[in-house]
Design a protein around this nucleic acid. Structure first.
Lengths: 132, 132
DNA sequence: CCGAATCCCCCTGGATACTG
DNA sequence: CAGTATCCAGGGGGATTCGG
């Protein structure tokens, strides 16, 4: 990718190794990841089927659900279990690792619910005095 | 756009784009936001100048630093103070609101530092057995 | 010194259609 | 039912340049 080798620092490389937080945020910041984790965490320790997950995440496309679940599985945050029936039934559940992420995520959610109204308010203020 | 107008809940439903958590994640997920908050939080209660911030955030361009700081200020997470000297000296510091975000963010950082190595390992495993 | 403006690449994620 | 493949629009964010 050779993005920015001229600017005195290759941030493409330097960012990943030094900052696990960045990596995590890239995942959590992905549009549907945190919701999937939340829904799976709420259901835990039960499993959820693909269609059930989809129903519990209104607005998600099956492509994005599929992609999101794949990356969770790939990261070891979730596990996939296939029942070899016809048609196949695929179940997902969080691993312990995935469950352990719920704590920090819940804290962030808590903060958001407490403070986002204030932030939106601040933004509206900025829209008034700024453009004026 | 087929949002999720059928979905009942707003608050606490992070499926909905209006959900506070979604909005927060969009901010925190922005590439440099969390890093800027961290650096500002570490310096608190002292202020940091623009150039100093830039030095403490390896790899950031001045455009992105500018943009990031603007959105922090706009959200009321940070404050901007200009000394009308020539050339001007611009200082930033977190507001109380911004500081209060540091807690949850630090928790996430903590989680990342503890578990990201495991996640990367999981990914390498997936790369081996998958393509095989 | 600080930041606004511009250009542009590329990645995310949405819609749709097709397999097993 | 579950997942894959393709196409495509939008926007984030990097480099660069100009302004005060």
């Amino acid at each position: 990718m050779t993005r920015s080798e001229s600017a005195g620092g290759r941030r493409g490389d330097l960012f990943d190794p030094l900052c696990p937080t960045r990596q995590l945020l890239d995942r959590v910041g992905a549009k549907w990841t945190s919701m999937a984790v939340k829904v799976l965490a709420e259901a835990a320790p039960d499993e959820l089927r693909f269609a059930e997950l989809r129903r519990r995440i209104p607005g998600i496309s099956q492509k994005m659900l599929s992609v999101t679940l794949q990356s969770l599985v790939r990261d070891g945050l979730a596990e996939r279990r296939v029942e070899p029936t016809v048609p196949p039934a695929v179940h997902y559940r969080l691993t312990d690792l995935g469950l352990s992420l719920e704590g920090p995520l819940a804290a962030l959610r808590q903060w958001a619910e407490t403070h986002m109204a204030q932030i939106e308010h601040n933004n509206r203020l900025a829209d008034e005095i700024g453009p004026t």
